[in-house]
Amino acid sequence: MLDDRARMEAAKKEKVEQILAEFQLQEEDLKKVMRRMQKEMDRGLRLETHEEASVKMLPTYVRSTPEGSEVGDFLSLDLGGTNFRVMLVKVGEGEEGQWSVKTKHQMYSIPEDAMTGTAEMLFDYISECISDFLDKHQMKHKKLPLGFTFSFPVRHEDIDKGILLNWTKGFKASGAEGNNVVGLLRDAIKRRGDFEMDVVAMVNDTVATMISCYYEDHQCEVGMIVGTGCNACYMEEMQNVELVEGDEGRMCVNTEWGAFGDSGELDEFLLEYDRLVDESSANPGQQLYEKLIGGKYMGELVRLVLLRLVDENLLFHGEASEQLRTRGAFETRFVSQVESDTGDRKQIYNILSTLGLRPSTTDCDIVRRACESVSTRAAHMCSAGLAGVINRMRESRSEDVMRITVGVDGSVYKLHPSFKERFHASVRRLTPSCEITFIESEEGSGRGAALVSAVACKKACMLGQ
């Protein structure tokens, strides 16, 4: 009897593995994704193909990295998701002549009506938060230079001027797309009239992360975010950046690689679950690469896999709870928690219980395998993109072996128990001629924006502006 049951459990697990095998990517698959990513990057950089390229390769006008001589107080704003952060950054000489960066910050959550109302409502709310922060720190009387981390696709015309191309991540505030974001912020500050600010720089969160990590390690020339969304930036040779005049030196390019796949480059790798996630998203047909990796989508992918296993009578005796059938019910943090389970399955059992399920031991094991399959594919897909960037940098610099540091931020990278190990191992397999160091950014977005502002202020002083 026991043997029969054991055989049935083994057969069930084997069927589960057959279904989950769809998520496995072979090294040849990853090399294919990497080569296609490089081709799209090239198209994004070139003037004649930029418009139709899915990977936009947006110039950021960040050319210099901090040298350690900029000092002063800077205000930093960070808008990239449902939370908005205001930070005071003091850049100065530390002990023994070292450079020191001290920060104080406060988080504000953005109400739904500000995210989806008008641009005026959104930026009025942001300036209200700045006003509140300055009151708390008794700094209303000071006109501070301000660095703005704005983590949406922007076409820069200068370091302090950028046109919002399109909202992502659930934002829909009308009247912002096609307009200068810094102008919208300046107008809102003017409307309030109770404080003055000098907006000197606007950067993407990947750029802010790279600059913040450069402060720790001067070989950091790539910034990457794996959180709600997924994106990367890197220092490109100016001669390859056709959208900006000049051939000397390097400029940081914001790849906006989340949109890779929007022209069909990933079609052969998309599964039924991916198509369902895409169809029910706020932007169907867009940001397809990001939807395979980002935390906004990972939990939902797992939920759809679990429903398939229920329908195949391989999980929960073929019956799903009402909660499990509800879109968004299986949160991405559950994926991390399930994979963090120590082996007694308590954590998995508790999560499934909150979803109205009474799982068996085998159910718990199957749910864990589903989570591992989805998150491992995410790590491997992400590795193909980064390997594409790094191999490109090595080739354009004609280096036999390139040493490089990548600064990384984002909740999936930082909080998932195995993502970074799987990701690092896969990147290294795909970049055999590179020695890569990964560092995690601390308060990256805010500190990085302030350091970019410090560079901009120093330049302005040198130019006598």
Rank of each mutant, 00 (worst) to 15 (best):
R191S: 02
R429F: 14
V207L: 09
L75Q: 01
T149C: 15
D113C: 13
N180E: 14
S433N: 10
A259Q: 04
E248K: 11
G193K: 08
K291H: 00
V226C: 06
G318A: 12
G464L: 06
S411Q: 11
L122R: 04
R186N: 03
N166E: 13
G294A: 14
D124Y: 01
G229S: 10
V33E: 01
K414S: 04
K172S: 14
R192C: 01
L146H: 00
L430Y: 02
A370E: 00
L25H: 04
S453I: 02
R447W: 12
P66T: 08
K31W: 06
A176I: 02
E95P: 13
E28Q: 05
G223S: 07
W257G: 01
S100C: 14
L309I: 04
D113P: 14
M37Y: 10
L266W: 03
R275S: 14
S441I: 04
R333A: 05
L463A: 14
V406P: 00
G147L: 11
L146T: 14
V203H: 07
K172Q: 15
A114M: 15
P432C: 05
F150A: 13
E177H: 03
C129R: 03
I390E: 00
A378K: 02
I163H: 14
D124N: 11
L292E: 00
R392G: 01
R377L: 00
L134H: 02
C382P: 00
R275D: 15
D135F: 04
L352N: 03
Q138G: 12
G223I: 02
Q323P: 12
E265K: 04
V55P: 01
C434V: 11
E236I: 03
T405Y: 11
H156V: 10
G193R: 08
D198H: 10
L47S: 10
I439N: 03
M121T: 14
E177V: 13
Q219H: 15
K136M: 06
V335A: 06
E265C: 11
M251S: 02
A320L: 05
T342N: 03
D311I: 02
F148K: 08
V455D: 05
K190G: 13
L463D: 11
L355H: 01
H137F: 06
C434D: 08
L134G: 02
W257M: 08
V33Y: 00
A379C: 12
Q347S: 09
V412T: 15
H141L: 10
D78E: 15
S375Y: 10
A387C: 12
Q98E: 11
L79R: 06
M34G: 05
T332I: 11
P432G: 10
S336I: 08
V181L: 11
S375W: 12
Q465V: 05
S109C: 09
E290W: 08
M87C: 11
H380C: 08
K140V: 07
W99S: 12
S263R: 15
G285Y: 10
E268H: 09
T332V: 06
L352G: 02
T431A: 15
K169N: 02
P153A: 04
S445Y: 15
E157I: 11
E9I: 09
G193A: 12
G92A: 08
S426A: 14
L144G: 02
P66Q: 03
C382G: 12
K458H: 07
D187P: 00
K296D: 13
N231Y: 09
N180V: 11
V277W: 02
E442I: 09
E40T: 05
M251A: 02
A384G: 09
E256H: 03
E300R: 02
R63W: 05
N240W: 02
E93V: 14
Y349D: 15
G448P: 06
G261I: 01
V253E: 00
E51S: 05
I351S: 08
S263T: 08
L352C: 14
S280A: 12
E93D: 13
F123G: 10
V310G: 03
L134C: 11
G261E: 01
R191N: 04
V55K: 00
I110S: 02
T228H: 04
T60A: 03
A454V: 08
Q138M: 06
F123Y: 09
D135P: 00
K458T: 09
Y214C: 09
E236S: 00
R7S: 11
C230S: 15
G407F: 03
R447L: 15
E242T: 02
G249I: 04
C129V: 06
S375Q: 08
M393F: 03
E236W: 04
E96F: 15
S375V: 07
S263F: 12
V222Q: 02
E17I: 15
L2R: 04
K296E: 07
G299T: 02
T116N: 05
G410Q: 02
E221H: 11
T376Q: 07
E52W: 09
K291N: 00
A53N: 02
L164Q: 15
F171L: 13
E440R: 06
K13V: 11
L134S: 04
D341W: 04
S445W: 14
G147M: 11
I159G: 15
S418F: 12
L75K: 02
D3V: 03
S383W: 00
D187S: 07
K169I: 07
F84M: 13
P66F: 05
G407D: 03
Y108D: 01
E395Y: 14
E27P: 01
E236M: 02
G68P: 15
L47C: 13
L144I: 07
V16G: 04
F330P: 02
L184N: 11
V207P: 09
S396C: 12
R345V: 14
A208S: 03
L134I: 12
M197W: 09
K169C: 08
Q287S: 11
P59A: 08
A208N: 01
G249V: 01
T255R: 00
E14F: 11
A11G: 10
E319H: 15
L122W: 07
L357G: 03
E17G: 05
L463M: 13
G229R: 11
I130E: 01
C364G: 06
E322V: 11
K414G: 01
D409G: 15
A460E: 14
E22R: 11
K414P: 02
G68C: 07
Y273S: 05
R63E: 14
L309H: 03
G446M: 13
E28K: 10
P59W: 05
Y61R: 05
D247Q: 05
M238H: 03
N313W: 04
V401G: 13
E28D: 08
E177P: 05
N391R: 07
C230K: 05
G72I: 02
L122M: 06
D4H: 01
E279W: 09
K459P: 02
D29L: 05
W99K: 12
S411R: 15
E242H: 13
G407N: 01
D400L: 08
M210G: 02
V200W: 14
Q287W: 10
K56W: 02
Q337K: 15
V89M: 05
I436V: 08
I404D: 01
M115E: 04
P417A: 05
R368V: 13
G162Y: 10
G285S: 09
N391E: 09
N204E: 08
G464P: 11
R191L: 05
G193H: 05
L314I: 06
V86P: 04
S360A: 06
R303C: 01
I163S: 14
K104N: 07
Q239W: 11
G246K: 03
M37R: 00
A21N: 00
N254K: 11
C434M: 00
Q38E: 03
A114E: 14
R394K: 04
Y234K: 00
M87H: 05
G448A: 10
G193T: 09
E95C: 15
K102M: 06
M41E: 01
E96S: 14
F316I: 02
E339L: 06
R155G: 08
Q337F: 05
M57R: 01
M121F: 09
I225C: 06
G299Y: 00
G72M: 00
E120R: 07
C371E: 00
G193E: 13
S398H: 13
L304E: 09
N231S: 13
S100T: 08
T82G: 15
D217G: 13
A176L: 13
S383A: 13
F74P: 01
M87L: 13
N83W: 11
L134P: 00
A384C: 14
V427C: 05
E290A: 10
L144W: 14
F330L: 07
Q219M: 03
V182G: 08
G223Q: 01
D365L: 04
V154C: 13
T49S: 05
Y215P: 11
M8K: 14
L451Q: 11
D205S: 06
S151Q: 14
L451I: 12
F423V: 09
E279M: 11
I163D: 15
E51M: 10
L324N: 01
I130T: 03
L77F: 07
Y289I: 02
